[in-house]
Design a protein around this nucleic acid. Structure first.
Length: 614
DNA sequence: GAAGGCCCGCTTTTT
DNA sequence: GCGGGCCTTC
């Protein structure tokens, strides 16, 4: 058990503050998660009502959940989850008010949405011909552009009838409506719809909003610098000027989701202007060693804080020849640290679990992953939330079949299912008929399994267990992949089932889509993660790799400049402040580019200030 | 208007 | 490293 540290004066002020709007401006490492959980704990002693605690990542939610486990009946007393999860719950319970006969299915995969965009483009006569004649790259760029436009329109909560007033491009408007139609026809929604539909529901049905308002004693929002327009307006619709017991906790310097429409302004400006909160600053960092703190302050000098720890710590920057040697250096360093077993700066033994390796984006980890595997070091890749990425073809078929089974209108995944099964697509056919056409024994069996599943999923575990027992495949590799996939799925099911009273496979799929079922917290080994998914989490030992310029900051941000570069800098600041004690930064002097040759790299422009000191 | 030369851009990040 | 787009030149 970790030792309980006394709350500071400011922390105490926040935890026991009177009801009413509070804005906690908290620097990294100031113990804001602890303050938030203690605040929740205190509030629960004052009321029998529920508390709404909103986070932006499931990970952050889990972190809070873990700290509150000793409160009886906590599950029923606090709604703890992401904005999207909260919306899912509202739509499940009241969606019929806005014409949702049943809860739509969430299309979470970007590739799925891009395919719908493609279909929408082809349905738009005024641009389909031009689109078809373009080369593949241009088509792809166009699809991304359209998807961005659609997402932005929805985030801005623009009514369908009003889309035309937000672009001069008539084609975009047509595609927007076709995309919307395609989702609707498949009884599906995307992430943005979750927020937008819930917003509409709360605005058009004030009684429902009032119902929710009355059921909550307080609302707490963590990482509030990540709020976007849709989320903030949703909050306003919910509170409606009547509910003021809101606490926001955030740090403008950690705003890194601009690409998703987020801005610290919703917390810093709008919340302040609309709710007139008491503002309390937490500027003492209790968490990071001096070495880590001084380096973080060099990244963002405005992020003034007071060092709260006496630990000296380590901060180093290393240039390596290329990404292979960089990965090798990291592996060697990890081995050395583990061999060291103990260090005065670190509480308890040095274990793999205390180590995290961070980078700007996912592909940076390729070399490291290979080498960790070769050296047999345990590691855990913090997956981008969402459903499982099945490795085996068979379980991909399972997933598609399940989607089709649960949503007969889902023509997108039905088409994919036909492709995966290598059979001719036929209209108006159901899963049962498809299964009759299959000759491949294995595929047939998995389809029959999906057909046998009960709506509530209660036989999922049994059926998949039996399936594993009876699986006869020569290819050991294939077999292992299938086993791994099934076990992974069952883990997700377990996480879903333990928190749900009225289970359904449909709800399970949607919860998976929102990343709510991830086995996030209890994992073993070294954590590999992008900075974005590491928000709010800290490790004793942190490596930040791939710190060459135009990788971090990303070359597109360099080109576009402005807010995007600020976000890159914030992102690095977040990366640095994930370290409690040791921080090792590495960069390759040359890097293999996607087209297969090396390109000479420079050190990240953000690190040039460290030239002399290291 | 055809040929040749030069430049640009390639894989984000999450719910 | 390579294809596409855009420019220059005859």
């Amino acid at each position: 058990m970790t030792t309980v540290i006394e709350l500071s004066v400011n922390q105490t002020k926040i935890v026991y503050a009177e009801n009413g709007p509070i804005y906690v401006k908290a620097v990294a490492g100031s113990g804001k998660t602890r303050v938030l959980t203690e605040r929740l704990r205190y509030l629960l002693t004052k009321t029998n009502k529920k508390i709404l605690a909103l986070t932006f990542t499931n990970k952050a939610g889990k972190e809070i959940e873990e700290r509150l486990t000793n409160i009886p009946d906590i599950k029923n007393r606090v709604f703890l989850g992401t904005f999207h999860a909260f919306c899912q719950s509202i739509l499940e319970n009241h969606g019929r008010l806005i014409g949702l006969a049943q809860m739509p299915h969430i299309f979470e995969e970007e590739s799925d949405r891009l395919e719908l965009v493609e279909q929408a483009i082809r349905q738009t006569p005024s641009c389909s011909a031009k689109y078809k004649n373009q080369d593949i790259k241009k088509q792809k760029n166009f699809r991304y552009g359209v998807l961005n436009f659609i997402s932005k329109i929805k985030r801005e909560l623009i009514a369908d009838s009003d889309v035309g007033n937000h672009t001069n491009d008539e084609n975009l408007v047509l595609i927007y409506h076709n995309y919307r139609g395609l989702l609707h026809a498949q009884n599906a929604i995307d992430f943005d719809d979750l927020l937008k539909l819930t917003y509409t529901l709360l605005v058009d049905h004030p009684k429902t909003a009032a119902l929710y308002r009355r059921s909550f004693f307080a609302i707490c929002i963590d990482e509030a610098q990540d709020l976007n327009n849709a989320q903030y307006q949703l909050l306003r619709a919910l509170t409606n000027g009547e509910f003021t017991n809101i606490m926001m906790v955030g740090d403008p310097n950690q705003s890194i989701y601009h690409f998703n429409g987020s801005s610290a302004d919703y917390m810093d400006r709008h919340f302040v202007n609309d709710f007139h909160p008491v503002v309390i600053e937490l500027s003492e960092n209790y968490c990071s060693s001096k070495a880590v703190l001084t380096s973080a302050i060099k990244i963002i000098p405005e992020a003034e804080y007071i060092a709260g720890t006496v630990k000296k710590g380590i901060f180093q920057i290393h240039a390596l020849d290329n990404e292979e040697t960089e990965a090798q250096w990291v592996v060697d360093k990890i081995n050395a640290l583990i061999a060291l077993k103990k260090h005065n700066d670190i509480e308890g033994p040095i274990t793999y679990e205390k180590i995290a390796v961070l980078a700007r984006n996912r592909y940076i980890f390729l070399s490291l992953e290979t080498q960790l595997k070769d050296e047999n070091l345990p590691f855990y890749y913090k997956m981008t939330p969402g459903g499982i990425q099945f490795e085996s073809d068979l379980m991909v078929i399972f997933d598609l079949a399940l989607r089709v089974r649960l949503n007969s209108q889902d023509s997108l995944h039905k088409k994919r299912l036909f492709t995966s099964l290598k059979i001719e697509p036929t209209a108006n056919t159901n899963l049962k008929n498809i299964s009759l056409q299959i000759t491949n024994e294995l595929n047939k069996n998995i389809l029959l399994l999906v057909l046998k599943l009960s709506e509530d999923g209660n036989n999922l575990k049994q059926l998949l267990g039996d399936f594993k027992d009876n699986l006869r495949i020569q290819d050991e590799n294939e077999k292992n992949m299938i086993f791994k996939d099934i076990d992974e799925l069952l883990k997700h099911w377990h996480n879903y089932a333990k928190n749900t009273d009225n289970k359904s496979l449909h709800q399970f799929k949607n919860s998976m889509a929102l990343g709510r079922t991830h086995p996030l917290i209890h994992h073993s080994g070294i954590t590999l993660s992008t900075v974005h998914t590491m928000k709010g989490q800290e490790f004793d030992i942190v490596f930040v790799i791939g710190m060459d310029d135009e990788t971090f900051p990303d070359y597109r941000a360099v080109r576009r400049g402005g807010i995007e570069m600020t976000q890159e800098k914030n992102n690095l600041y977040v990366a640095f402040t994930r370290a409690k004690r040791f921080l090792y930064v590495t960069w390759p002097q040359k890097r293999m580019m996607p087209w297969g040759n090396y390109k000479i790299r420079n050190i990240s422009r953000f690190l040039k200030i460290f030239n002399e000191s290291i």
